[in-house]
Amino acid sequence: MERVPVLKIGDILLVSIQIDMEDQVALQLQEDLAERIVASGCHGVIIDISALDIVDSFVGRTLATIASISRVLDAETVVVGMRPAVAITLVELGLSLPGIRTALNVELGMELLARERAEDDEDRDDDADEPAVTTP
């Protein structure tokens, strides 16, 4: 069985799906990613699907599950590079992929993750500045 490689670039795990995945391969990717997030301590995952000429409900569901799992593991997932024909088909199919963040390409995906991270850090700084007891 083929496996989809997971690359670590800085603080980000990059997955570029280049093959027409069997369902088993998609499930394997889901497992691999969960393990890599924990092992690497990365806070962002980018899944590039620009090479996929279709996304059916199974792959869609797998992407949604990956996003949920990584969120539990404190990592944000961005799906990038969805082709227009794929997006149009997903809309017709009735799959809106709630809970999945998307970006047009890897670069914009990385920007999105960086922005999110910065906002997160700001929140944390704010928390530190504020007194522990809030006045009503």
């Binding site: 279709i54 059916d56 409900s57 024909a85 088909t89």
Partner: peptide, 17 residues
């Protein structure tokens, strides 16, 4: 057309599964 190809292949994938 490309969009129709994509729709048909997606439908086939759903139904074959």
């Amino acid at each position: 057309s490309l969009v129709d190809q994509t729709k048909l292949v997606t439908a086939a994938s759903e139904l074959a599964r």
